[in-house]
C-alpha cells in the first residue's frame, strides 16, 4: 500500500492504517517540535496534540498537499500559539542589519558537527541561540534549512509569500551564525 491508500483506509476507520501513519511520522514530528520549543517534555506534548488533531480531522485532509506538510502546519500552529504568549522575550530581528555581517572570523568554527550529541556545551550554545530568535523566524529556518522543505512548502505552512520566506530565512541564518560566532569566541 502506498501512503495515499493508507490514508484512505485510515479515513474509513482502519486503526492499523492510522497506526501506520502515526509510526511513519512520529519521530520527525517529535524532533521538529523539539527543535522549535527546545524542551523534551513540551515536544512530546506537542507531538501528542498534533497526532490527536490528525486522528480527529484526517477526513478533512484533501491530499492536495503532502501529509507531512499538513502535519508540519499543525505543529507550527501549536508551537506558535504557545510561544507567542511570551513574545516580548525575543530579540527583534528587524533592527540594524549591518550587525549581522560583522567581519570577525576569529572564532573557532573547527568543531565537527558530527560530534554534537557528545558535546553538552555546544548543545547549550545551540539552544540559547535559537531560543533568542523570534518563533516566526525560527520556524522558517527549521522548515526550510533543517527539515529540508522547499521555499514554496515553507511558505504554504507559514502562510508567507516566497519573498517573505527568503527574507526571514536570510535574517534567521545570519542571526544564528552571529550568535554562534560570538559564543565560540568566549
Amino acid at each position: 500500500m502506498n501512503e495515499e491508500e493508507i490514508i484512505e483506509s485510515a479515513k474509513t476507520g482502519d486503526r492499523k492504517a492510522m497506526a501506520l501513519l502515526v509510526k511513519s511520522y512520529e519521530k520527525t514530528i517529535y524532533n521538529f517540535a523539539f527543535k522549535i520549543c527546545r524542551n523534551p517534555e513540551r515536544a512530546e506534548n506537542i507531538m501528542q496534540e498534533t497526532f490527536l488533531s490528525m486522528v480527529k480531522s484526517l477526513n478533512q485532509f484533501d491530499g492536495k498537499s503532502k501529509l507531512s506538510t499538513w502535519l508540519y502546519r499543525i505543529v507550527a500552529n501549536h508551537c506558535l500559539m504557545e510561544v507567542r504568549k511570551n513574545k516580548h522575550q525575543f530579540v527583534s530581528t528587524d533592527d540594524n542589519e549591518d550587525g549581522f555581517y560583522e567581519n570577525n572570523f576569529a572564532s573557532d568554527w573547527n568543531l565537527e558537527p558530527q560530534n554534537i550529541l557528545e558535546n553538552n556545551e555546544l548543545k547549550k550554545i545551540l539552544d540559547d541561540a535559537i531560543t533568542k530568535l523570534s518563533p516566526d523566524y525560527r520556524i522558517v529556518f527549521l522548515l526550510r534549512d533543517v527539515q529540508g522543505l522547499s521555499t514554496e512548502e515553507t511558505g504554504e505552512i507559514t502562510e508567507l509569500s516566497v519573498p517573505a520566506v527568503k527574507s526571514r530565512l536570510h535574517r534567521a541564518r545570519a542571526f544564528l551564525r552571529k550568535e554562534l560566532n560570538e559564543a565560540f569566541k568566549r
Binding site: K35, A43, E44, L126, V146, R173, L176
Partner: peptide, 25 residues
Amino acid sequence: SVEKTIEFYKLYNLEFNPDAHNRLM
C-alpha cells in the same frame, strides 16, 4: 560557517524512546 550552523541544527536530534511511542498510541 553559515553551512555549519545549519548542519549543527540538523544533527541535534533527540532519541525517540519506546515509552514516548507507547504513551502516544
